[in-house]
Amino acid sequence: MIALLLALGSSLAYGSADFLGGLGARKAHVLLTVIIVAPASLAVELLLWPVLGASFSTTTLGWGTASGVASTAAFALLYRTLAIGPMNVLSPVTALVSAALPVGVGLAQGEHLAVAGLAGLPLALVAVVLVSAGHGTGSVRPSRRALLLALGAGAAIALQLIFLHQAPSDSGVAPLIVGRAVSSAVTLAVAGAMWRRLGSERPAYAMSAAAGVLDAAANLMFLLAARSGDLTVVAVIVALYPAGTILLARAVLAERIHRSQLVGLGTAAVAVGLLALT
């Protein structure tokens, strides 16, 4: 139950962070947003170090670095995807891909589910599909380029979660710190090399920093959930994060929620209930 609650919290935090990051990327080049988001996330994780501890073994450094590289790609691809829009179509597509890969890894590593979990897991994946089925902005459909970006973002998110899960369970927040330090360094280096091509628009500083804080909270809750539960269950619950993005897009941007997306949200609630019984 604790793992499930942490996964739900992580899902809500990811969804909110993605909404703010995608919205910020509409105001300036995506890299200008990411160079604020990543360091803000790192700052929060460094503050958590004295509280939760950290052990920087060679294995932890390796998996943390790998997660940081994947996170850098995820940031850039996802925020660019959401900037192109529509958010309430592309975000669920990304989530579906980000769920499938960790679930496959968890099953391959020998994780087993109870009867309720065997029903809840596919139902949760169906919920993600239903949420992604609605074209919430009416006649507006995503371009092929936007869909490819969404698929790439989903794969990068999945790899980040898988790499974090592989880090030693007694490493504290070290994998998060290493990952965010790497992603911050890579992002700043790329932004520095491309500085003249980033445009003169001012990034949304407060919005981007808030996205970074929420991202740090989401990463922490995922890590704790994965350590206390099965990756198969935790990953699919976290993959429901588009619900938060969609609801915020509806409230702030007046993007329409399609009927199938509403059914998907209801299906997700049932799936979470079943998974809670495992």
Results as ranks from 00 to 15, higher is better:
A204L: 08
S41T: 13
T267E: 00
A119L: 15
L52G: 05
L220S: 01
L118A: 02
W49Y: 15
A40T: 12
A119R: 13
L12G: 06
A254P: 02
V34N: 00
V270T: 11
V44R: 08
T81H: 03
A206C: 03
A209M: 06
L220Y: 12
S55Y: 13
G264E: 04
V190W: 11
L12P: 03
A43T: 13
E201V: 10
R202K: 15
A158Q: 03
A133F: 15
L164A: 06
S132A: 14
A153W: 09
E255H: 06
R141S: 08
L188K: 08
I84G: 02
K27T: 12
P203N: 04
L8D: 05
D215P: 02
Q166F: 14
Y241T: 05
L32D: 00
L220H: 07
A249R: 05
P39L: 07
S143N: 11
L231R: 00
G154Y: 05
N219F: 09
L90I: 09
L77H: 04
T232Y: 00
S16G: 11
A226Q: 06
L82W: 02
A40C: 10
A13N: 06
P122R: 08
A158S: 12
L8F: 07
A209N: 05
L47F: 14
S71I: 13
A251M: 10
Q261T: 15
E255P: 05
G172M: 00
L224Y: 07
G15H: 08
L253M: 08
G136W: 15
L47R: 11
V126P: 01
P168C: 04
I237V: 12
L151Q: 03
S71P: 03
P168A: 02
V173I: 09
E201P: 02
A268Y: 15
A225H: 04
A268K: 05
T232I: 06
N219L: 10
E201W: 02
Q160I: 04
V140M: 03
A276S: 10
I177L: 03
D170T: 15
L198C: 04
E255G: 05
L101W: 06
A70M: 09
A28M: 05
A119F: 15
